[in-house]
Design a protein around this nucleic acid. Structure first.
Length: 671
DNA sequence: TTTTCTATCAGCAAC
DNA sequence: TGATAGAAAA
């Protein structure tokens, strides 16, 4: 299959795609066809005879990775089973599954998410005699992460340091790693075992990094270990919105230092938005100081409708307005519900928008927030499977040892914990020891209950380590622990909740079923499944029946997406920019502005911004001031909506026809 | 010793 | 709004 690269790309894109060898830095403004460049670049390499297994592309979300792989496949019409397109974290897992034994972990390690981690930190602090009321787990977690990712060092008199040591020792004892470890541990492997590094480095001769502005210090390190000279970073400093997660857009500067002969290519043509939206976005972001100069421009010359501002009475009115406006525009312009995106700063704000949409019968889906896998009932089941896969995993052991109730309460666990501590063993190992040695003191009843639990784990462990019928075995497990009955007793006063939770559990098991029956899945083991779901997010779940619905999500979750019509709700001072974010540091106003910029540039055709006059906070209505960012939009680009009349201003030009005629190839382009 | 009930507190973004 | 710690009840 031959691709006419020159015809399907603009000159800058073409240059970016065909510069295969040597370091390349692509500064890709919002909507400039970033994904297109990356996918075409991979296709180009393949066409030039680079073997697929030599290409590594790293992205930030599973969704982006999957879509990218799909597009390369459809572009080249090849199956490409050995092409590696993956998130940083998933790639870290891939390395660790091969190499972690070098560091003293076993291959069946567990991955702790944030709540697992916080639980462990709490246990460690308690263990060391800290009063839990005065011990800030969140703060400790942040410091731990900073230390682990080498952003700060201990001062030597830090109260957290001891807890950190305990935490690290516990992780190792439990054969577990946390999220940061997924990046840090591979680096450690590469530093300590140069032969391992050489092997990986040789394997991937072409490395590409997407969303480079959001790479953290350690991700950059990992990339450096892996890349020789053929490295290509694609990013946009104006869209760096993850500094709280360690992202550091100064990596762009470091890249230029580390590869001085870098070829730098700027993509500023925007194929997405109207001139009005671009002008507004440019004007807003120009208020940031520390950035690479660039301005988006539209090759179409379509001015488009003005940006519509609205100040609803309160959050309820805001939700109503959004719902009505969506209905009206959909009808008038024959759009689909999925053409609409409603963006908010915090997940808590979704509620009011949801109520508005519900009241007007507008179908919607919420992306992000507490993911499916964070739900209690789902975590329970996953905890069981984690313990079955890795019995040393104390955090998950504790979580489920008494769910459903089996008489193993606090006292028994405390006692078991003491015994484990004395011997330096995991709880599971200790429990086995207790079973074998009647001399070890424990009340008879507790002993029996514990034994029963051990047997349960063991019988399922031997069952599930096979490579067949995982879903059926999970169903059997659910039966064995009678999880259904537990859901009923645990939700006595809320039958609906119990039913809903049961449905969730069922859909989890169905998910396993689908996954293990996928012909492309070459490793249908319990370990593989656990590794996968540890890294999965809500946006990986959608596709099923979610097309044709309005998209409701946070601005963070919207990065990389685009919608015909965008609403930015809750555009008030204190929310956008978020007060809490500003408290944290000086530079955060600029990051909040970038966040707003990202929100604005999601819109192709029309943008609505609302800022409530009053909003309830903790049940008390509070007067609100519009976001200062609104004043940064040139006045000539906006109109005010007064709360009645036409909700959908006309922009008579036929946007689509014009847009499509301007460009060859697919016009609908994600970033 | 375990389970159930009640009061209190904190709530930004997510791999 | 939910999680969680501590008190009361079983």
């Amino acid at each position: 299959m031959h691709i006419d690269f020159e015809a399907e790309l603009n000159p800058e894109q073409y240059e970016a795609v065909t510069t295969m060898d040597g370091p390349v830095l692509i500064i890709a403004g919002a909507g400039s066809g970033k994904t297109r460049v990356i996918t075409y670049r991979m296709a180009y390499m393949l066409e030039k005879g680079v073997p697929q297994s030599a290409i590594l592309a790293l992205t930030f979300t599973n969704k982006a990775a999957r879509e990218m792989a799909e597009r390369v496949k459809s572009l080249t019409r090849r199956k490409l089973q050995n092409l590696t397109v993956s998130t940083f974290h998933a790639f870290g897992v891939k390395i660790l599954r091969k190499e972690i034994e070098r560091l003293g972990w076993r291959e069946n390690f567990s991955i702790y998410d944030e709540s697992d981690r916080n639980q462990l930190i709490k246990d460690c602090a308690r263990e060391l005699g800290f009063k839990l009321e005065t011990f800030d787990v969140q703060a400790a977690g942040k410091v731990f992460s900073d230390v682990k990712t080498r952003r700060v060092a201990w001062t030597g008199e830090d109260a957290y340091e001891k807890v950190y040591r305990e935490y690290e020792a516990s992780l190792k004892a439990f054969n577990s790693v946390d999220f940061d470890d997924l990046i840090v541990k591979p680096i450690e492997v590469f530093e300590r075992f140069p032969e391992a590094r050489a092997a990986w480095r040789e394997h991937y001769r072409y490395v590409m990094i997407d969303e480079f502005q959001d790479t953290s210090h350690i991700q950059y390190e990992l990339m450096r270990h892996l890349s020789d000279d053929n490295v290509c970073a694609v990013g946009d400093d104006d869209q760096s919105i993850y500094s709280w997660r360690g992202a550091n857009y100064e990596n762009i500067v470091r890249f230029e230092k580390d590869w001085p002969h870098v070829r730098e290519i700027k993509l500023e043509r925007n194929y997405r938005s109207t001139g009005t939206i671009l002008e507004a976005a440019n004007a807003v972001i120009a208020n940031n100081s520390n950035r690479k100069e660039k301005a988006l421009w539209s090759p179409t010359g379509i001015e488009g409708a003005p940006i519509q501002l609205f100040r609803p009475e309160d959050e309820v009115a805001e939700g109503e307005f959004i719902a009505r406006s969506i209905k009206e525009q959909k009808l008038k312009e024959r759009l689909a519900y999925s053409d609409f995106g409603v963006l908010i700063r915090t997940n808590a704000l979704t509620r009011w928008v949801e109520e508005g949409l519900l009241a007007e019968n507008v179908p919607y889906k919420v992306t992000g927030g507490t993911s499916f896998f964070q739900r209690k009932e789902i975590k329970d089941i996953i905890s069981y499977l984690r313990v079955i896969a890795n019995p040393e995993d104390d955090v998950n052991f504790i979580r489920i040892v008494n769910v459903p109730r089996r008489g193993i309460g606090r006292r028994t666990l405390e006692r078991l914990g003491e015994l484990a501590k004395e011997r330096g063993l995991s709880l599971h190992k200790t429990a086995e020891l207790v079973r074998a040695n009647p001399s070890m003191e424990l009340p008879e009843k507790a002993r029996g209950d514990l034994e029963e639990f051990l047997e349960l784990v063991e019988s399922f462990r031997s069952e599930m380590l096979g490579r067949r019928n995982l879903a059926a075995k999970v169903r059997a497990l659910l039966e064995a622990i009678d999880y259904r009955a537990w859901l009923v007793t645990d939700n006595l006063h809320n039958e609906k909740a119990a039913k809903w939770k049961l449905l969730n559990v069922e859909s989890l098991v169905n998910g396993i079923d689908v996954w293990e029956k996928d012909p492309d899945n070459h490793d249908p083991t319990l370990f593989a499944w656990l590794n996968r779901i540890s890294l999965i997010t809500r946006d990986d779940m959608d596709d099923e029946e979610d097309s044709g619905k309005v998209n409701l999500m946070t601005v963070h979750a919207a990065k990389g997406l685009e919608f015909e019509i965008v609403f930015i709700a809750g555009c008030e001072d204190g929310i956008m920019p978020h007060a809490r974010s500003l408290e944290e540091g000086e530079g955060n106003l600029e990051e909040e502005r970038r966040l707003f910029y990202v929100a604005v540039t999601r819109a192709r055709r029309r943008l609505h911004i609302s800022s409530a006059m009053r909003r309830r906070r903790n049940a008390m209505p509070v007067d609100c001031v519009p976001s200062p960012f609104l004043a940064e939009i040139p006045e000539k680009l906006v109109t005010w909506y007064e709360g009645e009349g036409d909700l959908a201003p006309d922009d008579a030009e036929d946007f689509f026809a014009k847009m499509n005629s301007m460009f060859p190839g697919e016009a609908k382009e994600e970033e």
